Simulated scan of single mutants.
Amino acid sequence: MSHPADLSPAQRQLRARRAVDELGPDRDEHTVVRVRCGRSHHVATVFDTPLGAVYVSSVGPHAHGHRDFVDEPHHASTHGTAYTDLLDGDPLTEDTVPAYCECGMHELSRAELRRAVDAHQRTIQLT
């Protein structure tokens, strides 16, 4: 496997998406960090995969429902656009990653997410 520094952003995101897909239907068992907004909406998840930590979020308006996960429709009929990327990048990789919930857009820091993973912090609550 190529080091993240050797991959373009599109290649890195494709590999990350495939790594999460390979976790299968029980991927929640591989969750290391969940991110929630101040209203407890689900904003993003970091999964432990064979490639390393992978960040997953739905960007753009999407449905919410049971426990605020996007696969449970509630007030919207769309699912947004999935944004998936390796949490670690090269020194030129932008630190911020996009996220979205009913409250609006969020930008999360890869460095802060990495610190949460390293500290075994299960949930990040945004303010």
Rank of each mutant, 00 (worst) to 15 (best):
D28N: 13
P61D: 13
V35M: 08
T123Y: 04
P9M: 03
E22R: 15
T123H: 03
S57Y: 03
S77E: 12
V97H: 02
H120F: 07
Y55T: 04
D95G: 03
V43D: 01
A119W: 09
E112D: 15
D26C: 07
A44L: 12
A10I: 11
A53R: 11
D90C: 15
V59K: 00
C101Y: 00
V33L: 01
Q121V: 15
T127D: 14
V20D: 08
D71T: 11
S77T: 14
G89V: 04
M1G: 14
V33R: 00
E72H: 15
R34M: 07
G89E: 07
T96R: 15
T123Q: 08
T93D: 06
S57V: 07
P50W: 04
V117E: 13
T84M: 01
A63Q: 14
T78M: 04
R17V: 01
T84Q: 01
G52Q: 08
L92K: 06
L14Q: 15
T49E: 06
L113W: 02
G60I: 09
R114T: 11
S40R: 14
V46I: 14
L92E: 12
D71H: 11
P4A: 09
H79S: 10
P9A: 07
A44W: 06
R122H: 11
L7K: 13
P25C: 02
R18H: 12
V97G: 02
D26N: 12
L7R: 14
L87T: 06
D85N: 09
S40W: 03
V56T: 11
D88G: 08
F69K: 05
D118Q: 15
P50R: 05
D21R: 14
S57H: 06
T123M: 10
D95Y: 03
S58Q: 12
L113E: 02
H75T: 11
D88N: 14
R115G: 01
H75V: 02
G89K: 10
S77V: 09
V43K: 00
T49N: 04
